[in-house]
Amino acid sequence: MDIQKFIISRPYLYHLTSSQNADNISSTKSLFSANTLIDMTNDESLQGVKRARRAEHQTIVIGENTFFLRDQRPISEKALAKCLTNNWSVGDFLFHLNDRVFMWPTLDRLWKHFTRYEQERPIIFRFSTSDIIEANPHVKFCRLNSGATRPSSYLGGIAPLRGAESFVVADQFDRQVRDVAEVTFENECKIAGPIWSSARPDGDFHQMN
């Protein structure tokens, strides 16, 4: 995939998070993966969280700051076990997910995620795709919603396959721009350029900085 074509076709990236995370994101100008936040606590008792499905939201305290990790309830561990490649275990793939920051490349994909958490009144951040990718050359792309494990009748009753090869750099993404489902960053995504926020995908986005 041509990265410049992607930037032109998808001028914005969207990130949904708990409204309680807004101040930390604005002040640090970074989005951190769950695994990175856990490492930042220096709390060895939390290491097991990296390879476990979060059934509920989880609070992470780092110094005077509190971060809220979203639950992973939509993931069925039973279904996930049936669609993994590379001889990975469920724990292997959950670690892989928890090692990433996720963004949505379109409002349509954002909507599907937003409706799951709408009652919690999350906050949506919008970023310039060109600014974010320039500041984060380690960006990788995924062709599917990596946390969706609903079985497909077209695939013989299992969810689409996923594993180490699910997240790839642009040059290895052998599909079209329209096929990018997730834009991801290992460990950390540095926020460059303006930050806009909204309470809803169809709401007004206001610049925060």
Rank of each mutant, 00 (worst) to 15 (best):
A148E: 15
I3F: 06
M40Q: 12
F167W: 06
I132D: 00
R54Q: 08
T41K: 01
W111T: 09
R150I: 15
D71R: 14
S33N: 03
G203D: 11
A34K: 09
P194A: 07
G91K: 00
P151Q: 13
Q72W: 04
S152Q: 14
R54P: 06
K29G: 08
V90M: 04
L84M: 06
S130K: 13
D108G: 07
G91P: 05
E165L: 08
K112T: 09
W111Y: 15
I7F: 11
P160Y: 10
P122D: 01
V61M: 08
R116A: 05
P122T: 02
D23M: 13
V90T: 08
K82D: 15
I62W: 01
G163V: 02
A79R: 14
D39K: 06
G48N: 11
Q4L: 10
L84D: 09
N21E: 10
V139A: 08
D99W: 00
S27T: 15
F32Q: 03
R100Y: 05
L69Q: 00
S153Q: 14
R175M: 12
D204M: 10
N187K: 14
S166T: 14
L13P: 00
K50C: 10
E165V: 11
H96G: 00
R126Q: 09
A81L: 08
S89C: 04
R54H: 13
F68E: 14
I191L: 08
K140W: 06
R116W: 13
Q20M: 11
S9H: 12
E134T: 08
S153A: 15
V101R: 00
Q47H: 09
D43W: 04
I7H: 03
S146G: 15
I132K: 00
L13W: 08
R10T: 13
F114R: 00
P11G: 07
Q58Y: 09
G91I: 01
E118D: 11
T59I: 11
A52E: 09
S153W: 13
